[in-house]
């Protein structure tokens, strides 16, 4: 009862902040391993034919010990490297940032406003040093249809947990 009230109160404010936006929530799973490094994660937008449209975020080790940067392992995000990474000089303003700890993360993609109306896929690729790699795709329509289902999810099994993409009208 209490929580319901809370939601009702906070919803209008949240909706206003998220107006015509693309919001992503994702989970980096906790690993029970002897040697753990935070994963490199790339997120980008593709058309349904898998052609590259736009980068959303790239999380990599910006200041590893004993090295100038962790760009040496960016190629392990091999689909992203092929689609976009190899064309870029890191860091990229508004796109690249440091790796994130295991747990839930949310981000709002302001760059979605430049997308032409149509069908897209949100692609997320994670690669971990001495670990595995996983890539997930979440389809979405831009802009969201008013009153329509504007939230889609994918579930990772190894390097990624649940990934949810919400497009708000």
């Amino acid at each position: 009862m209490n929580s319901k009230k809370l939601v009702a109160v906070s919803l209008p404010a949240a909706a206003a902040a998220m107006a015509a936006d693309l919001n992503v929530s994702l989970e980096i799973p906790k690993m029970n391993v002897a040697e753990y490094h935070r994963p490199y994660v790339a997120m980008w937008i593709e058309k349904p034919d898998q052609s590259f449209v736009q980068n959303v975020a790239v999380w990599y080790d910006v200041r590893p010990k004993g090295r100038k940067s962790g760009t040496t392992w960016l190629k392990d995000l091999r689909q992203w490297w092929r689609k976009s990474g190899r064309e870029l000089t890191m860091p990229v303003d508004g796109v690249s940032g440091a790796t994130r700890a295991a747990g839930s993360h949310t981000l709002s993609f302001a760059g979605a406003k430049t997308l032409a109306p149509g069908s897209y896929e949100f692609v997320i690729e994670a690669a971990r040093e001495v670990g595995g790699r996983e890539l997930l795709r979440v389809p979405f329509e831009w802009p969201a249809k008013r009153g329509g289902n504007n939230s889609q999810s994918a579930q990772g099994t190894t390097e990624l947990g649940a990934v949810k993409v919400t497009v708000t009208p």
Binding site: T71, T72, L74, K75
Partner: peptide
């Protein structure tokens, strides 16, 4: 065959 970064 594929390299990234600055110490290759």
């Amino acid at each position: 065959t594929v390299f990234s970064g600055d110490d290759k």
